[in-house]
Amino acid sequence: ATLVRVVKNANTLGIAIEGGANTRQPMPRIVTIQKGGSAHNCEQLKVGLVILEVNGISLRGREHKEAARIIAEAFKSKEKDYIDFLVVE
């Protein structure tokens, strides 16, 4: 697994995720990266990567909506100007 730090340097994170507990894709996977988003700007996140953790919070066993909420809240949070993703191919 790789730790990727995404700096919040754009209005949007700019990723689309698919997957979550009780679906064919058990862990959230990046299916799209939008140009101009923070994820695209960091140049380390790639389509196809599976997200294991967000800021140390494990996404294992979480339903899709909950995993998406955790990522969205991490991006909206004013505590940090970055998000740490633990990802795997």
Partner: peptide, 16 residues
């Protein structure tokens, strides 16, 4: 395991 996965529903996609 593969059969079990195939019986699971496909996941939705969320843009963040």
């Amino acid at each position: 395991v593969r059969e079990k996965r195939l019986t699971l529903p496909p996941s939705e996609i969320t843009m963040l």
